[in-house]
């Protein structure tokens, strides 16, 4: 069910987001999202800093467990080849059918918050990736 269809049926679906990164990248990105869009519910930042692989995976597991099944979620990580990627998978993202998107940038998070109540999750994922890639460019160059 798309979020729009859910609304018509009198239910509210809001896909949750976890931004799991090295250092404070995720926390700062979420802060900036809120500076731009105002307070945002359902978007949490976590770090691998100070945590072993197992401890970071436990953070992911805890976040997955609190997701409402109807809402679902997305995990954003900063690097596809690092401990955040491993921890997301070891923490259960695949078995929970929660996509893990790497290369998180500000545009991706703005797209997530903007479209998560409008698009079904598969479409949302593609929109986020498309928007995020568009944002990686030479400023001023013709597209």
């Amino acid at each position: 069910m798309t979020p729009a269809a859910a609304r018509r049926a009198g239910r509210m679906i809001m896909i949750q987001g976890l931004v799991l990164t090295h250092g404070a990248i995720g926390a700062e990105l979420v802060k900036v999202v809120e500076l731009i869009l105002g307070p945002v519910a359902g978007l949490r930042a976590e770090t691998n800093q100070g945590r072993s692989a197992k401890q970071t995976a436990e953070v992911v597991t805890g976040w997955l467990e609190q997701l409402a099944p109807a809402d679902g979620g997305l995990i954003f990580i900063d690097d596809y080849g690092g401990s955040c990627a491993s921890a997301s998978r070891l923490g259960g993202a695949e078995s929970a059918r929660v996509p893990v998107l790497s290369g998180v940038n500000l545009t991706m998070l703005l797209a997530f918050v903007t479209w998560r109540e409008e698009l079904a999750r598969a479409e949302l994922v593609q929109r986020i990736i498309d928007q995020g890639r568009l944002a990686v460019t030479v400023v001023g160059a013709a597209r």
Binding site: H22, N48, S52, A53, K54, T56, D79, G81, G82, S83, S86
Partner: peptide, 12 residues
């Protein structure tokens, strides 16, 4: 390393 394979190992 209790993170085993991660950026410090593969990249660093």
């Amino acid at each position: 390393d209790d993170r085993f394979i991660h950026g410090q190992v593969t990249v660093g």
